[in-house]
Nucleic acid binder design. Structure first.
Lengths: 158, 158
DNA sequence: ATAAAAGCTCAACCAATGTTCAGGTCAACA
DNA sequence: TGTTGACCTGAACATTGGTTGAGCTTTTAT
C-alpha cells in the first residue's frame, strides 16, 4: 500500500480532474476560487491541488445556481460551513431549506404575475389606472436593491 | 411632404414627459430607441419628440420585462405590429398570450425544480449517481443556447 | 531527454440592461 | 436678453457569471 500517507490526503485532485468530474470548466473553477467559493492549495510548481470535498462543494454550487441563487450568496453560505470539512448531509439540509424558501417565493411571485396577466389578456386594457399589471405594488412589491435572479441554465454556447 | 400637421398630432411629447408619465428613466428611453423598441422624430433643434402611442408601447415593454422577456424579443414583437399605429387591445392580446405561455413554462420548470429539491432535502444525499437534482436532463432539459431570463425587477438602485 | 498536455496569471471580452458623465445645445420664462 | 432647466451625443462604467487568448511554466508520457 501507500508507504508515506502522513495524513489521509487521499490524493489531491488537479483542476482538470475536478473539472471533468464536476462538469464545470476549469475557468469556472478559477473563477469560483477568486470569488471565495472554493479553496485549493498549491503544488511545488504552483499548480492548484484540491481536497476531495471540493466536489461536493461544487455540487452545491451547481444546484444553487439552478435554483437561481447568486454566487455571492452561495459564497456566504459556503463560508458559513465549518471550513476544512466537507459539507455534510445536515449542512446541505440547512442550506437547501433556505434556498427552497427562496425558490418558493419566486414561484409564488411568478404565479401572481401569471394571474394578473390572465386578467389582462381578457380585458386587453393595459389601462393606466386600472390595470394591475401596469400598477404593481400591491401584490408584487419591487423589493429593493437585490441581485438579479436568473431562472434558466442556458447560455452555455460551446 | 407634410406641410402641416393636418392629422391630430395632439402635441408631441418630449422625452422628459414620456419619462415622467411612463415611469422609466430618460436614459432608458434613449436605450430603447437605440434598440429599436420605440421611435421618435426630432424637433427643429434635434430634440426627440414622441407620438402619444409611445406610452402604450412603453407599457408593453414594462410588462414584458416583468414577465422576463428579453428586450430583443420584445423588440421583435413590437416590430411585428403595424408601425405608425398604437398597439390595440387585440395586438396586446396576441403578444401577451404568447408571453403567458412562456411564463407558464417558467413556472412549471421552477416547480419541478422545487419538487426535486424537496426530495433532496429529505435524503440529503447530493449523491452523484442517484440525485435528480444533480443529474438534470430528465425533467429539466438544459434547453440549448437561449437568452437568460430574469425574474425579479430589482436592481434599481437610486 | 524531450515533447506534449496541462496548468499558471493577467487582461480583455461577451451578453443584457441600463446609468453616469463630460462637453455642448435648445427652449422657455422673466 | 439672460438664465436656467431640459436635452443632445458618445464613451465609459456597473453587474453577474463566466470564457478566451497570450505568453510562460509544470507535469507527464514516451
Amino acid at each position: 500500500m501507500d508507504p508515506v500517507p502522513s495524513i489521509d490526503i487521499g490524493k489531491a485532485l488537479t483542476v482538470g480532474e475536478v473539472a471533468r468530474r464536476s462538469g464545470v470548466a476549469v475557468s469556472a473553477l478559477h473563477f469560483y476560487e477568486r470569488k471565495g467559493l472554493i479553496k485549493s492549495h498549491r503544488s511545488a510548481g504552483n499548480q492548484r491541488r484540491y481536497h476531495r470535498d471540493v466536489l461536493r462543494r461544487v455540487a452545491v454550487i451547481k444546484v444553487a445556481q439552478r435554483i437561481g441563487i447568486p454566487l455571492a450568496e452561495v459564497a456566504g453560505a459556503l463560508a458559513s460551513l465549518p471550513s476544512g470539512r466537507s459539507p455534510t448531509a445536515r449542512d446541505w439540509s440547512r442550506l437547501s431549506a433556505r434556498w427552497r424558501q427562496d425558490l418558493d417565493e419566486r414561484i409564488h411571485h411568478l404565479s401572481q404575475l401569471r394571474d394578473q396577466l390572465d386578467d389582462c389578456i381578457g380585458c386587453g386594457c393595459l389601462s393606466l389606472t386600472a390595470c394591475r399589471l401596469r400598477n404593481p405594488g400591491d401584490a408584487l412589491a419591487e423589493t429593493g436593491t437585490g441581485a438579479r435572479r436568473w431562472e434558466g441554465d442556458k447560455g452555455k454556447f460551446r
